[in-house]
Design a protein around this nucleic acid. Structure first.
Lengths: 343, 343
DNA sequence: GCTCCGATTGTTAGCGCTACCAGCAGGCGC
DNA sequence: GCGCCTGCTGGTAGCGCTAACAATCGGAGC
C-alpha cells in the first residue's frame, strides 16, 4: 500500500514535485495535473508520472498546496467534553463522514463552558485555517458565543437553539420528552416527575419543555423539576429524594447516566422498578439495555446528527445557501423499566 | 479577546504580514520577529506592531509558516472507535495537553482493525503533515502494522505491546488483573472465572495473563476463558452460562460494560451479588459506582495515559532519545460487588 | 498547402512566511 | 579617533505548489 520509501538510495530529503517531474521526464506542472486533474494529461504520461510518484514515495505537501489554493481540507470540531457519550458519538460520525470525503478533522475541546471559551475554541481552529467548523456544545453560552461571532468562516452548530445566525442540526429534544412523558401517562401514572440536566444546557431545556407541555396539556399536576449535572451521581442524589415520596410512581430523567443513579436510589429505598415506580431515561447508551431493569429510554441517533452536521458544513463551504435547521427525531425504546401504575 | 475584524473599512481580503508591516511602519521581518521572538525587537517597536496586528485582525497563515519552517503544530491521533470510554478519555487527555502546549490535534479513527487500516490511518495523518502521531489501538494488528511501518515520523503507541519499534505508554494490565484476582482469592473464593475481551486485543491479553498467573501461582484450578467483545451484550451472553454453574462464585470480567451484562445475567438466574457470586470489572467507568451493586473494579487512569503519550511524543519530536516504556499502574477500587465466598 | 483548432505540455509568477545574511546605529576599550 | 562588538532592523531568497497564460503538435477543413 504505502510506497516503499527506501529504494536503495540514501534518502536525504522527502521527494518534492520537481523530483517527480525530473524522474518522469515531464514538467512539474504536468505532475501536478496528473495528480489533481488526471483527465487533463495523456494516459501514458499519467502512468509515467504515477510510476515516478511511487518510486520516490512522493507525498504532496499540503502546506504548499494550501498556500496557493486557499483550502486546507481540514474541518474543525469544537466540543465540550468529548468523553461523554453524545459528543463522542457525534464526533465519531463527523470524522467518518469527513474521511469518506477526503477531509480530515481537527478537534478543539473546551475546558470550560462560557462565551469566551467557545470563541477561543473557534479561534484556535480558525488560526489553523480549517475550512469550516462544527460546534458541538449544546450550551447556552455556546449559543451566546456564536451569536457574537462573525468570523466569516463556514460554521455549523449542533443543538444550539434556533435563534442563532448559523445553520443548525438539532435533535427534537422536545419531541423526545413528549414521547417519554406520554408513554408514562399512557401506563396510567397520574403524573411524571422530571430530573433535568443542567438548566443552561439547551438540550436539557428542550426536554423539560416537552415534559411540561404534555403534563399541562393533559391537566396533570406539574411537579417541581430537580436539576442534575448529567452524572449518575447527581441522578442518585436526586433520586433519593424522590424515593422517599410514596406518591412518586413515574420518573423521567434527562439522560441514561442520571437514570442509572435513580435506579440505584430507588432500589436502596426498597422501591421496585417498574412495579412501584416506572423510570424512563434519555439517549439509549449502549449499556441501557443491560441496566436493571433494562431501561426504557429515548434513543438519539448521534450518527445521523454527525452526518447531517458534516453535510451541512460541506454545503456551506461550497457556498450553498443556508437552509432551515435539520431536525433529527429521537425514538422511544420501551424496555422493562416502565410499567403500569400501581393499583 | 478576538481582534475586532471590522474596523470601518470594507475588508476585502484577510490582512497579511506586509499589511501589518506597512501599518506599523516597519519591515515584514520585524513583524515576524515581534510575533515569534518578542525579545528580539525593541519593546516600543513590538507595541507598535501589536497595535497594527490588532487593528487589522491579522492572523498568521499557518500554511505559509509551515512551508518554511517545516513544522505544522499539529499532532495526529490514530484510534479505533473513539466512542468507547477508554479511547475517548485518552484522546481527551491528549487533546488537553496539546492545547496547553499550543498544539492542535487531528484525529483519524479507523473503520476496521487490521494492519492495513492502521497504515492507512497513519498515512492519512502523514499526508496532512502532522508533526507526530499517537496510535491508540491496543490491538494485535496495530502492533503488527507498526512493526512494518517506517514512516520516519515521530510516533508513539499506547498499549501496543512491548515488542514494537516505537516508544509506548502502557497500562499495566497484567498488574491490574493480578490485583483483581488476588482480591477475589483473598475473600476466600477457591478460584476465579474470567470473561476476557477479544483475544486479539493486547490489553485483553494482558488481563488474561495476570489472572492466570495468580491462579497458577496459588495452585488453583484455572477455568476456561470465555472471550467477549467488550460489550455489555457479550457479558450478558457469557454471564448466562456462568450463572448456570453453581460452582462459580467469583467472576472477573475484562471491562465494566461486560461486567454490567454479567450482573444482569446473574440476577436473572437468581444468583445474588455478592452473596452468591462476587464480580469484579475493569476500567472504572464513571457509572461503575452506580451499578447494582456498586462495582468493584480496576481503575485505569486514562488521563495519565494521555498525558504520558503526549509528553513522549513531544520529546520524540524534539529529538530526545527513546526511553523505556512509560507504565501506568491501575488501581483496585473495592465497592460492593465483591464479598466473602459463600459458606 | 495553409489556417485553425483542440489536446497536451511547458513557463512564469506568486501564495505568505521565515532563514540567513547584511546593515546601521551607538557605546566601549585603547 | 578608530576598530569592534552588541542590539536592532532590513533585504533577499526560497519553502513546494498551482493559476494563468503561452507554446507546441497533429490533424481537420478548405
Amino acid at each position: 500500500m504505502t510506497p516503499s520509501a527506501d529504494n536503495g538510495k540514501a534518502r536525504t530529503r522527502p521527494a518534492v514535485l520537481d523530483d517527480v517531474a525530473e524522474l518522469a521526464g515531464v514538467s512539474a506542472m504536468t505532475v501536478s495535473r496528473a495528480l489533481n486533474a488526471p483527465d487533463r494529461v495523456r494516459p501514458e504520461t499519467r502512468a509515467r508520472v504515477m510510476a515516478a510518484v511511487n518510486e520516490l514515495g512522493y507525498r504532496p505537501n499540503p502546506a504548499a498546496r494550501q498556500l496557493v489554493t486557499g483550502r486546507s481540507g481540514v474541518l474543525g470540531v469544537v466540543s465540550f467534553d468529548t468523553t461523554l457519550y453524545g459528543p463522542a458519538s457525534t464526533l465519531y460520525a463527523i470524522e467518518q463522514a469527513a474521511r469518506q470525503n477526503d477531509y480530515v478533522v481537527n478537534i478543539a475541546s473546551l475546558g470550560a463552558l462560557n462565551r469566551r471559551s467557545i470563541a477561543e475554541g473557534v479561534e484556535r481552529l480558525h488560526a489553523q485555517s480549517v475550512d469550516g467548523i462544527v460546534v458541538l456544545a449544546p450550551h447556552e453560552s455556546a449559543a451566546d458565543g456564536l451569536r457574537h461571532l462573525s468570523s466569516g468562516l463556514p460554521l455549523v452548530a449542533v443543538d444550539a437553539g434556533d435563534d442563532i445566525p448559523v445553520p443548525v442540526v438539532m435533535v427534537d429534544q422536545r419531541g423526545g420528552a413528549v414521547r417519554a412523558t406520554r408513554h408514562l401517562l399512557s401506563l396510567g401514572h397520574e403524573t411524571v416527575w422530571h430530573l433535568s440536566g443542567p438548566p443552561d444546557w439547551i438540550d436539557a431545556r428542550g426536554r423539560v419543555e416537552g415534559w411540561r407541555s404534555v403534563l399541562e396539556a393533559e391537566g396533570r399536576p406539574v411537579p417541581e423539576v430537580a436539576a442534575g449535572d448529567w452524572s449518575a451521581h447527581s441522578g442518585y442524589r436526586l433520586g433519593r429524594r424522590l424515593a422517599e415520596d410514596p406518591s412518586v410512581t413515574a420518573v423521567f430523567a434527562a439522560n441514561d447516566q442520571m437514570t442509572l443513579g435513580v435506579l440505584r436510589a430507588l432500589r436502596e429505598a426498597g422501591r421496585r422498578v417498574p412495579e412501584d415506580v416506572s423510570v424512563v431515561g434519555f439517549d439509549d447508551v449502549p449499556e441501557a439495555a443491560y441496566f436493571w431493569p433494562p431501561l426504557t429510554t429515548v434513543r438519539q441517533d448521534f450518527g445521523e446528527v454527525g452526518r447531517h452536521a458534516f453535510r451541512l458544513l460541506i454545503d456551506r463551504i461550497q457556498g450553498a445557501e443556508e437552509g432551515g435547521p435539520r431536525i433529527v427525531e429521537p425514538e422511544l425504546v420501551v424496555r422493562e423499566s416502565s410499567g403500569p401504575a400501581p393499583h
